[in-house]
C-alpha cells in the first residue's frame, strides 16, 4: 500500500507501524512518530495499524533556538 512518509509517497508491505519503520530503515534510529497528526508513542507502535493514504511523520533531534 502507499502511505505518505514525511510528505513523500512510500510503498510499504505491512500495516503495523513498528514493522513499517523497520521496513523503511528506521528500526534502530532515534525517532518519534505521529500518524495523521496524532502522536504515537514508541510503546504503541506495535499495536498501531496503518492504512493506505495515512500520513506518517518521523522526526529526530535537531538544532533549535
Amino acid at each position: 500500500m502507499k502511505i505518505l512518509v514525511n510528505a513523500e509517497t512510500k510503498e510499504v508491505s505491512t500495516h503495523v507501524l513498528s514493522d513499517i519503520l523497520v521496513e523503511l530503515g528506521y528500526g534502530d534510529v532515534k525517532i518519534a512518530t505521529a500518524l495523521n497528526a496524532a502522536f504515537v508513542a514508541k510503546t504503541a507502535r506495535a499495536q498501531t495499524q496503518v492504512v493506505a493514504g495515512d500520513r506518517l511523520e518521523i522526526v529526530t533531534p535537531r538544532q533549535g533556538g
Binding site: 514525511n6 510528505a7 523503511l24 530503515g25 528506521y26 534510529v29 532515534k30 525517532i31 518519534a32 511523520e57 518521523i58 522526526v59 529526530t60 533531534p61 535537531r62 538544532q63 533549535g64 533556538g65
Partner: peptide, 15 residues
Amino acid sequence: TVSVRREAGRGGEGQ
C-alpha cells in the same frame, strides 16, 4: 534548546 524535525534520510543525522 533543541527541536524536532523530519528525518531527512536514514543517515543518523539526528543521532
